[in-house]
Deep mutational scan, measured.
Amino acid sequence: MQIFVKTLTGKTITLEVEPSDTIENVKAKIQDKEGIPPDQQRLIFAGKQLEDGRTLSDYNIQKDSTLHLVLR
């Protein structure tokens, strides 16, 4: 499925993911596309910070959802 990741600069990254993918996995995909190390990434969805060990389906993230990427 496709999800979107919006950065603070207003750029939107499109990712191909599975509901069973972990947040860690998603961060690795963002690193592949953007070169941002996962340890600098914070992903936010519906006002919640997403934890590495959980999956997209744990957070009820569905296709065409938009996550927000904050760098630390």
Rank of each mutant, 00 (worst) to 15 (best):
F45D: 02
D21T: 10
P19H: 08
D39Y: 11
A28L: 09
Y59P: 00
Q62S: 10
L69N: 01
V26A: 04
V5A: 04
T12L: 07
V26T: 15
Q49V: 05
P37I: 08
E34S: 07
L50Q: 01
P38E: 09
Q2K: 10
V70P: 01
F4H: 03
V17D: 01
A46W: 09
V70H: 03
G10Q: 15
N60G: 11
E24V: 11
Q2W: 12
G47Y: 12
H68D: 07
P37E: 10
K11F: 14
I13H: 03
F45N: 12
S57G: 10
T12Y: 04
T12V: 05
D64K: 06
V17M: 10
T22D: 15
T7Y: 12
T14H: 13
T7Q: 10
T55H: 07
L67A: 01
A28D: 08
Y59V: 05
S20P: 12
E16R: 15
L50A: 02
R72H: 07
F4A: 05
L67T: 02
T55I: 10
I3G: 00
G10E: 03
K27A: 02
T14P: 14
I23E: 01
I36M: 15
K63S: 13
P38I: 08
I13N: 02
V5L: 13
K29V: 14
L56H: 00
R54Y: 10
K48T: 12
L43I: 14
K6A: 11
I13S: 15
E34H: 06
Q2P: 06
G35K: 13
L50I: 14
N60A: 05
I23H: 02
N60S: 14
F4K: 14
A28H: 05
S57A: 14
Q40D: 06
K29I: 02
I44K: 13
V70T: 12
S65V: 07
G47F: 12
T55R: 15
R54N: 04
L8S: 06
V17T: 04
E34N: 14
G53E: 08
D32R: 03
T55D: 15
T12I: 06
D39M: 05
P19W: 03
Q31N: 11
D32T: 09
D32Q: 11
R42W: 03
N25W: 07
G35V: 03
D39N: 10
S57T: 07
L69Q: 02
E51W: 12
P38M: 15
D64N: 12
L50E: 00
L15D: 00
Q62H: 07
I61L: 04
T12E: 03
L71M: 05
K6V: 08
K11N: 05
K29M: 15
M1W: 10
R54Q: 09
S65M: 06
N60Y: 14
T14M: 08
L15S: 01
Q62M: 11
K63A: 09
E51Y: 02
L15R: 00
T22V: 08
N60H: 15
G47A: 11
P38H: 13
I61Y: 01
R54I: 05
A46T: 09
G35S: 13
G47V: 02
D52V: 15
E51K: 09
D32F: 03
I3Q: 00
I44M: 08
R54V: 13
I61A: 02
N60D: 12
A28F: 14
V26R: 00
R72K: 05
K63P: 08
M1K: 02
D52S: 10
Q40T: 15
R72N: 04
L69F: 02
L8H: 04
Q41A: 13
E24Y: 10
S57E: 15
H68Y: 02
Q62P: 11
A46F: 12
E16A: 14
V5R: 00
I36Y: 06
I30V: 08
E16T: 08
D39G: 15
G35I: 05
S65T: 07
I13Y: 09
Q49M: 09
I3W: 00
K63E: 14
Q41V: 03
S65N: 06
F4S: 15
I36S: 06
E24M: 13
S20I: 07
D58Q: 05
E16K: 14
R72V: 10
I30L: 08
Q31R: 13
L8T: 06
K33F: 08
V70L: 09
G53N: 06
L43M: 09
I44H: 08
L50D: 00
T22L: 06
K29N: 13
E24L: 03
S57K: 15
A28K: 07
R72T: 11
F45G: 03
F45Y: 14
D64S: 07
E51I: 11
V5H: 00
T22R: 10
L69E: 01
T66E: 06
T9M: 12
I30W: 01
K48P: 01
T12N: 05
R42M: 10
E51A: 11
T14E: 14
S57H: 08
P38V: 08
D58T: 14
Y59T: 02
Q40R: 15
Q31K: 05
I3M: 05
E18K: 14
L43Y: 07
K11P: 15
S20G: 03
D64Y: 11
V5I: 14
P38Y: 13
T66Q: 11
L8F: 14
Q41R: 02
L8K: 12
K48D: 06
Q2D: 11
K48L: 03
R42T: 08
I61T: 02
T12G: 08
I44G: 09
D39T: 10
P37N: 07
D32A: 14
L56G: 01
Q41S: 14
M1R: 03
L71R: 11
Q62G: 13
R42E: 12
Q49P: 12
T12A: 05
Q40E: 12
E24W: 04
K27Q: 03
L15Y: 04
E24G: 09
D32I: 07
I36T: 15
R72S: 07
P38L: 15
